[in-house]
Design a protein around this nucleic acid. Sequence first.
DNA 1: AGTCCACGCCGCCAGG
DNA 2: CCCCTGGCGGCGTGGA
Length: 163
Amino acid sequence: VSAGMDLALALIEEDLGAEVALAVARAMVMYLRRPGDQSQYSAPLRLQAAETPSVRELVAWAAEHPATDLSVPALAQRVGKSARHLTRVFRKELGIAPAEAIEQLRLEAARRALQQSAAGLDEVAARCGFGSAEVLRRAFLRALHVTPSAYRARFSAGKELAS
DNA sequence: AGTCCACGCCGCCAGG
DNA sequence: CCCCTGGCGGCGTGGA
């Protein structure tokens, strides 16, 4: 089962047969609830393995609009449910709370922006929904244990240096 | 370095 | 009885 899921997620990661792979991953969603962080797979795809369609769509939409208001009340209103219920469903299906999921989505967006663009940290922060470069920096340190600039430098220096 | 405040989480209870 | 849903209150966390 674990191997199957790894395969599925690998397929997703390679963007090959993503639809089938996502279906498999979705069926095995319970195995996605692991305690540790640092999954080798991207947060947007992993979080879109939710069973409930509304949650899945909400995550997908949020991943595409990281700079908008993604507060819990705002998310709840978007799907027509209460904040309480949304929190409960996130916990049940994804193993994490809404705010944490949003944080992961934004972090992922920032990672991509740092790698694929030359935008300044202020702009990266703004585009990815972080209030400021400082907020972005703190989030990076918390989740990845590196500063945004250090993260970017790692890639401009060459991937062989990344661990 | 310390304080304050807004936000978010979740246990619990109630109603459908 | 079970599941879904929402409100409330206390508590923890992190940004200002």
